[in-house]
Design a protein around this nucleic acid. Sequence first.
DNA 1: AAGGCTGCTGGTTACGACAC
DNA 2: GTGTCGTAACCAGCAGCCTT
Length: 281
Amino acid sequence: MQSSVRYIQQQFWHSAKAPHLTIRTTHKSLQAYKAHSHESLSIGAIVEGMTCLSYDAKQLKLSAGDIVLIPPNQVHACNPVAQHTRSYHMLYVDYDWCCLQLSKLHAKSVTQFDCNVEYLADAHATQPFFDALEALRTLASSSAIATMEQQIHALLQAYCVPQNTVEQTSSKKQQVQHIKQLLLADICHPPSLQQLATDLRLTPESIIRQFKRLEGITPNAYLHNKRIEKAKWLLANGLDIVATAHEVGYADQSQLHRAFVNYTAATPRQYQQQRSIFDNN
DNA sequence: AAGGCTGCTGGTTACGACAC
DNA sequence: GTGTCGTAACCAGCAGCCTT
């Protein structure tokens, strides 16, 4: 039972003084993640052990001291290597805040961006980021927030490139967009795969194939991701777990719990207990 | 005692192979 | 690229145990 997620030491920090930043710290975890995405920019910092990051059919092995940048909405998974535990920090940076910083940097409106680096392994380059994270976690001062923002700024400047907002509008892409709209129209009562197939005059298998080709995950996984993202917001804003489960479309708390563990490697309770970094002082 | 977490089971979804 | 089919994996709902 000690290997259960509930026994993993992990904390989430958030502060009203820096609402664009959330830190997650996980110690010695073997817990795997299913493929998922975040609307925020995710910056991972490996503290101990090794982890395997999978995305775009690539697999990267990261070790202690490495930093990885995961662009917003990039489907990815991050799992242990050879059943060895790993400890890591994840810094989630609000998407709009990143766009604002990039807009200032590039002197033009930026509404989308991508990252042109897979990971940083040079200790000389990554140590200041680790130091800033540690200062933010332990000192929790306004100057620590400013230092962290400088570090993020440097990463944005060096590795994040504004994207052209002109969307491809192939019929396939439009169809997948349509499926996403149908799935999210009523997140509590989404259409079944069979209903979607009937509506779009396709087989369920074709829908899954098309969706996965363009989105990187299956329609069901996409739906779970959106539910969990909404659940995280509701939990962080004080809604209890049972109400959150119903609010995002799960029949009961146990279903939310299971999906939450699968996609975040944390329990809803652990996430709910996230506290202000200033609560410690 | 209440809320949180997990095991079990039937139904649904995802996937791979193959054919066209 | 799409449809069909068999199989594997996953999910929903329920029940009951564990933790606080």
